[in-house]
Amino acid sequence: MKNVITLFKRELKGYFATPVAYVFIVVFLVLVGGLTFKVGKWFDARQANLQGFFTWHPWLYLFLIPAISMRLWAEERRQGTIELLFTLPVTMGQAVIAKFFAAWCFTGIALALTFPMWVSVNYLGDPDNGVILASYVGSLLMAGAYLAIGSFVSAWTKNQVIAFVISVSGCFLFILMGTDTVLDFFAGWMPRAVLEAVASFSFLTHFQSITKGVIDFRDLVFFGSLIACFLFMNAIAIELKKAD
């Protein structure tokens, strides 16, 4: 545990040691604001909720989260520091968890900086803050799932661009599974059970159910187990690939 905290601190400080963190945060805030106000016409909707804000999160994360996760292990391997890291008295699990949580915490910071949205909606109207809080939790969980996938992909390559492209594609698959396009495609000829199974793997389905204001145990289990599963595979990937 002590090692995890030490590694976590180094990682998190690492984000702020370069302009990457600030660029990411600014881009995230500008995009999320632009999409909510300009494209989503949040003011015109005249609704005291943040539905029009959270709708964009899965799509924004699709491109922004892989931009964070791509360097997690790819950079470590390219710099050769992976050899340094794993000859220190730390275990694979500690390193994987510390890196993941640092990245997650960083996204959490970016997400928390959208608080003016929450302030505005409370100033303008009388929203259900429980729903908003649930949505934030859901958004953070979904970000964690994207990160776990991205971290896993990053372990396979030394090339950040490759890590980025593959992560975006992988995450896109997890979004797509819940869209009508995909579900309609299966609807005609697949049994209903398969349809539901496919849909149940979608980030959209679970995220949307949380943004309705109910944090269902099943949604928590979904994101939690997905993160755990990808981090486990992440550790295996590093073990397999660290020699080259």
């Binding site: 520091t81 050899e83 000859t87």
Partner: peptide
């Protein structure tokens, strides 16, 4: 083992942004 060894890997890899 890692506790009792001090190791300088080839090329002395370090975290460049620290």
């Amino acid at each position: 083992v890692k506790k009792v060894i001090g190791y300088l890997p080839e090329g002395a890899p370090l975290y460049p942004d620290m």
